[in-house]
């Protein structure tokens, strides 16, 4: 499986080599209608920001549409000297989390 970045995600470099990501928030239709009715939302896409730590930044930088999840896990394991299986679990958990937020897709 190859993770691919959502083109709508904006990446900002932070001091110290970390990154901040801004991604469009998926609003449930019923919540959107309700928020619209009570005047809490003007219909423009909402964005959410998240700052990645060093390891999250490492994985994000390796998501280039070519690296497979396994290759990213291998790179993670050798960069941080953790066990391959441990790296695999950590990387897949992270990819699942950002995938659920719509920041990446899998092909």
């Amino acid at each position: 499986m190859v993770p691919v970045r959502n083109e709508a995600v904006e990446e900002t470099e932070l001091p110290g080599g970390l990154v901040r990501l801004a991604y469009p928030l998926a609003v449930k239709p019923w919540f959107g209608r309700l928020a619209d009715k009570v005047g809490l939302w003007d219909g423009r896409p909402m964005t959410k920001r998240v700052e990645l730590d060093e390891m999250g930044t490492f994985v994000w930088r390796h998501i280039d549409g070519r690296n497979t999840v396994r290759r990213i896990a291998d790179a993670f394991a050798s960069a941080y000297e953790v066990q391959p299986r441990e790296a695999e679990l950590a990387v897949t958990a992270f990819i699942k989390t950002i995938g659920q937020r719509g920041m990446i897709g899998l092909k």
Binding site: D53, E54, M55, Y80, E81, V82, E86
Partner: peptide, 9 residues
């Protein structure tokens, strides 16, 4: 705990 290089940065 691992990786120490990150935890103790």
């Amino acid at each position: 705990f691992a990786p120490a290089s990150v935890l103790l940065k």
